[in-house]
Simulated scan of single mutants.
Amino acid sequence: MFKIIDLNTLGLGQEFPENIYFVLRGWMDSNNIIIKGDPNVIIDTSYCKSEKETESIFSFCGMKPDDLDMIVNTHNHADHTGGNNKLQLLSGAKIAMHEYDAHYVNLWDESGLNLDFSDWELPKFSVDNILTDGDILSFPPFDFKVIHSPGHSGGNIVLYDSKYEPLLSGETILNGDFGSVHCFREGNRALFDLRDSIKRLAQLPIRLILPAHGGPITNPQKCIDDCLRRINILIKEPIKMGYHFIRRWFIHAVLIRGEMEREKLFSHVSEIENFYAINKRYIKINNKDLFNEIVDDFIERGVLVDRDNRLSVINP
């Protein structure tokens, strides 16, 4: 399911151009931002298992998938790049990404792409255009500045236009939160990198944040303050950082697999490094105990449902 949100219904005063489309996607997929013009651009392409839905979105924007000229990825994770392969085949669009994450794509390094740590699938593609901090992407009437914002990923970027003042934040800033930080993979300084990235963004005049997950954020400063407060808590209490990461990854794992028997799901996730390695380093309890704790908590919150000992996601 997806929803195209008209940015001019958000009560922000100054009107946004009508050629930008914010596409709110389901929890497993990144949102998409489509800019119609010269060039025709999509920012992030969601997960590969949703590629048919991704292709269908273009008709609501007065386009066809083969009209696409450029794909810009905020980082190289599979829930943001899963549609790259198919859309590039359909359109011949060039793919742009920050040089750090592009390096692992063009080597097809599954560790660098976080595929061997997780449970993702990702059709192979390559990056054509290498982005660096300070580059300008002209998608009229927008001139987006590329801002390198490491933390969630080493090559994470956000895009900012100084005329209309939207921040396309990827997973650097979500609504009062941020994309999970994999210090086990990105290094011990990743949380500090993310904090520095958000502090840098806090200096910009921002009217609207368009994140990669969740709806538009119309109170940017409060959201940024909440993110910084949360990061400082995770820095001081690493066990909370471990839970922050595993909970988000766990829901993805269940969504990808669909309904599964509880014991089979445990057998599956307990063999994936994102689960057992993060637990060993940060949480440090028995894997089965951690699994049961997370499942029972999600059932109580109404995120998971247990039907005859079979688990599925109902409200991520």
Rank of each mutant, 00 (worst) to 15 (best):
I4E: 10
D6F: 07
G11M: 14
G13H: 05
Q14S: 13
L24R: 06
S59G: 02
K64T: 04
D69Y: 00
I71V: 13
V72Q: 10
H75F: 05
D79S: 14
A93F: 05
I95N: 12
H98L: 03
V105D: 04
E110P: 05
E110W: 03
D116Q: 12
D116R: 13
K124W: 06
S126R: 13
N129V: 15
I130C: 06
L131I: 02
G134M: 05
D135V: 01
S138N: 14
P140Q: 15
F142K: 12
V146C: 10
H148F: 01
S153L: 10
L167N: 04
F178S: 02
S180Q: 08
H182K: 15
C183S: 12
E186G: 00
A190I: 02
L191D: 01
L194H: 05
L201D: 04
A202R: 02
L204E: 07
A212R: 02
H213V: 00
G215L: 09
I224W: 02
R229H: 09
R229Y: 06
E237G: 05
Y243N: 10
G258M: 12
E259A: 14
N274I: 01
K280W: 05
V295Y: 09
I299C: 11
E300S: 13
V303Y: 09
L311M: 08
S312L: 14
P316G: 15
P316K: 13
